[in-house]
């Protein structure tokens, strides 16, 4: 049923789009019609696929590294009061720096290839993942910790056996956010300096006034993000259900 509504909404959007093009008679190089975009997507499918694979790779690697780094940081912070007092203000302060503004520097440091885009994606998702997971790790029922202490568990054992599993739903929340942010990071990186990827293809198409190709790339990017978000959502849901003891 959810599918039905989703598809209906998309159809309504396409019809509106086509209607605007017809009614306003806006030229093709400003707003192409959905049909023209579909045509461009079909004829340039090999080109779009080639660049999409680059962006997808950047996003997935960025997502993996960012999530792992964020999770490890959160565990370290939750495990040490001193580290927490020292690091949390720094982490919050770094959030005041707009990550997008770092893109030119990252390109300078890590080059025109995938590395600078992966770093960008990592930077953009690191904080949401760290903050969400840390929050979960800090909100464990103190009664559970007391119980574990009376059973003779060490701090590490409590972390591993109680706090981490308990905080999995919070990690899941962070991962859902990351799935949406990671493509933004990768594309911004591509805009600033690259020779491949969907962000690059959009700039290229724009420069050659191939607005239909630009839209086709944009829509491809949107579809990738939706698929990624859904996939991460399913994984996140499993983590949450596991931690809450709800099976299947």
């Amino acid at each position: 049923m959810r599918w039905f509504y989703g598809v209906t909404a998309m159809m309504v959007g396409l019809v509106l789009w086509q209607a605007i093009v017809w009614i306003t008679g806006v030229p093709k190089f400003i707003l192409p019609s959905p049909l023209q975009v579909a045509e461009a997507a079909y004829t340039s499918r090999a080109l779009i696929a080639e660049h999409a694979i680059v962006t997808i790779t950047e996003v997935i690697i960025g997502l993996l590294i960012g999530t792992v780094l964020g999770a490890v940081t959160a565990i370290q912070l939750a495990g040490s009061q001193t580290l927490q007092r020292l690091m949390l203000p720094i982490l919050v302060f770094t959030q005041a720096v707009p990550v997008f503004a770092l893109a030119p520097i990252l390109t300078l440091w890590f080059g025109y290839g995938m590395a600078s885009k992966i770093v960008m994606a990592v930077l953009i998702i690191y904080f949401p993942v760290t903050s969400a997971f840390h929050d979960g790790l800090s909100r464990v029922d103190t009664g559970l910790i007391d119980l574990a202490r009376t059973m003779g568990a060490t701090k590490n054992q409590i972390m591993r056996r109680i706090r981490i599993p308990h905080a999995l739903p919070s990690l899941a929340t962070g991962m859902r956010l990351a799935a949406v942010y990671a493509p933004i990071g990768a594309v911004i990186g591509e805009w600033v300096g690259s020779s491949e990827g969907l962000g690059y293809l959009m700039l290229l198409a724009s420069g050659r006034v191939k607005i239909d190709l630009m839209f086709a790339s944009l829509i491809t990017l949107a579809i990738i993000t939706v698929i990624l978000h859904t996939a991460v959502g399913i994984l996140a849901d499993r983590l949450s259900r596991y931690a809450q003891g709800v099976t299947a």
Partner: peptide, 23 residues
Amino acid sequence: AQSDLLLPWLTVLENAVLGARLR
């Protein structure tokens, strides 16, 4: 304690042996 403090992701049997699992 007043609340059972069972871990929701473990079965009853696994919860019963929580002490050993923790250690």
